[in-house]
Amino acid sequence: MPSDVLSLSTMTRTTTKTPRVALVTGATQGLGLALVEGLARRLTPADTVYLTGRDAGRVAAAAERLSEEVGTGARVRGELFDVTGQDTAARLADRLRDRHGGVDVVFGNAVMRIGPDDDPRTLMDEYTEVSNFGTTRLLRAFGPLVRDGGRLIVVASSLGTLHHLAPVLHRHFDGLTSLEEVDKQVAAWRDAVKDGSARAGAWPAFVNIPAKIAQVAAVRALAGLRRDEDARRGILVAAVCPGMINTPTSGLWWDVSAAASPARAAGPLLDLALDPVDPAHYGQLVRFGKALPWSP
């Protein structure tokens, strides 16, 4: 094992003497639910996994069901969390700080999915609030809470690289150095879609592409600010691609009959969250254990 991986592995082991705390957003179904279940099964009864979502009834039902199914694993605790609220991420972070002092694993998985028959112009406000501004709010609120040896992970897609964007548009997301810059670029793209000017330019019609690229850009921007300190503390900040998943929403766009189930797709993501840190993953988009190139 390389010495840099070994040192981070040792740090991770020494920081797990206290109960660990994990949080998953968008966790009442699909991949998010599978991540909560996987974390609960891999962690200990002393640990806590927060299952969060925007519908109180669904959150409570999912948390109760998983608590029964997991049995002797970590405690599954439901928590209402709408990532579109201006202050909801900060308030939740404050509550978890008061309860636990910090967090060890955060998965940003909340997303609003758009079907092929939807007109993005009518949905862009809510879509970007969930997928993009929700992501940057989560990173701002929970970044300071991640304890030594912890993980701050955004679930994105292999579409989230500049390879999928026309070169003339790369400047919008390449080299950004703050989450504020990312938000500014997302707002400009959102407005261009809403007023129709994006169609006259080089922006792709499939809005998932710029949204995912912006999510990865946010991770890269935050990582650039934290890199040295996170390396010292054994913290991983990364985006992750789970690959094609067999869900009803994905089935609207593609043939997913041979795709992985949410539980199977969650496996590599859980490995990223719980295995020793690979420094090559820091600030990158990781797919099946390998960092994907950001630019052509």
Rank of each mutant, 00 (worst) to 15 (best):
A56R: 12
C241N: 15
R13Q: 13
R42S: 10
R95V: 05
S9V: 01
R190K: 14
A265T: 09
A46G: 08
P2Y: 14
D255H: 05
D148I: 02
E129Y: 10
L145G: 02
D94N: 12
T44S: 14
R199A: 15
R147I: 01
G115S: 03
L285C: 06
A273D: 02
R137W: 04
G26W: 07
A188G: 04
V36K: 09
A263R: 15
V105A: 10
A231D: 12
G224A: 04
K194T: 12
T128H: 06
M1R: 12
P144S: 07
L31C: 10
D82I: 05
A266F: 03
L285R: 11
E37R: 15
H172Q: 15
A34Y: 01
M244L: 15
R233G: 01
A56F: 03
L292Y: 07
W254G: 02
R97V: 02
T14W: 13
G243W: 10
D275S: 13
L152Y: 05
G71P: 00
F81E: 03
G102E: 10
G38Y: 11
L139W: 03
G108V: 07
G115H: 00
E64D: 15
V219E: 02
V219F: 04
L51Y: 02
I213F: 09
I153M: 07
A63R: 14
L274D: 00
T84Y: 00
F133D: 03
I114G: 00
V103Y: 04
Q29N: 15
L252V: 01
A61N: 11
T52A: 06
R113M: 13
M112F: 03
G224V: 04
S157Q: 03
V216Q: 05
L292V: 11
E37V: 13
A110M: 09
R220Q: 13
P167H: 08
V49C: 10
L285H: 05
T28H: 07
L35M: 11
P2R: 15
P120G: 05
A74D: 08
E37D: 11
L39S: 07
V240N: 06
V155Q: 02
D230R: 12
P268T: 09
G115A: 06
V154A: 06
P279E: 10
F133V: 04
V59R: 09
L162H: 13
K194I: 08
R171C: 03
D230K: 11
A238E: 02
R41E: 04
M11G: 03
T48F: 11
L152R: 11
E129R: 14
W294V: 07
G283W: 01
T84M: 10
T15L: 08
T14Y: 07
